[in-house]
Design a protein around this nucleic acid. Sequence first.
DNA 1: TTTCATATGTTATATCATAACGTCTCCGTC
DNA 2: GACGGAGACGTTATGATATAACATATGAAA
Lengths: 159, 159
Amino acid sequence: MDTIGFERHDHRHCIATALQTVEETCDVQGLQLTPVRRRVLEILLARHRAMGAYDVLDVLREEGRGSQPPVAYRALDFLVANGFAHRIERLNAFVACAAPGERHAPCFLICRNCSAVAETPGRRASEALRASAGELGFQVERVAIEAEGLCPACVDTPR
Amino acid sequence: MDTIGFERHDHRHCIATALQTVEETCDVQGLQLTPVRRRVLEILLARHRAMGAYDVLDVLREEGRGSQPPVAYRALDFLVANGFAHRIERLNAFVACAAPGERHAPCFLICRNCSAVAETPGRRASEALRASAGELGFQVERVAIEAEGLCPACVDTPR
DNA sequence: TTTCATATGTTATATCATAACGTCTCCGTC
DNA sequence: GACGGAGACGTTATGATATAACATATGAAA
């Protein structure tokens, strides 16, 4: 698993791959990747950055697929619950998962200048957290690890 | 620095100590711990759990100290900016810092059953995160590490 | 065919947050 | 003492995010 956040890449390809992985996962696990859910995933993948629920909703609305908040939130909830997308707490926003299908506790790197978001493997940080929690008798179920700062591009040319 | 989240402790004492530390820090750094700011800190300390801005505002309102959201948000912003309180992104809520005065990157353990929040040292997790970020050329400024799960009490008696 | 579970669509409203502007107070300067 | 600036506060208004509740639809199970 690699980050795809701050580097050029074959975007068309990564969308297709992610979508296919999600389709297969849903198939295997008996999850319903309905038209709305699939479309919301496509929207997140296409933008390849964090989007608010209302941004997603705007796109759905233009396409005549329902125009009320619950439509977007429900699709996003489905994607997040099954690991196909992540919620960025710091931004109240959502991104498509960079590595759907793999169990992982991602970290997010959020650029405060350009708002780019990169997903990076959080194994070490998440294990450290689990260890601390374990000492206190706390049973960890979900972890959110988010860093705010400057991405490589904005470090070089701030503002 | 120790967590104070899930254990019995001398609450009266911890409030007084924290308040005194904050007063001294403000004094040294030339920060204005105004009546509203001080009162908001006291409110957070007294509850000793995560509170929404509007919960804080309700208390201020009862006391006739201003009844509009910006009053609470501004005081909370001051406390967070100076490390006297923390914002829990997952909950859109605030807690008094368990170790004001010390530079630290805390982790929060949030019980999904009883909503208790414990602050625990996040040094290892935060260092792991910085290391991952550094490899990507990302310059970390702030870190939020939050775990959701069951606290010791709720593990034993869920629901 | 009925029943049930699941998903969708819609209305209404709850919750969280901030922009903008006027006022007050303190402090330093003239 | 008058003036001017900085910072905090109070208020109005509004923006942004999120969900409760209920009606409708659809497909699978009994």
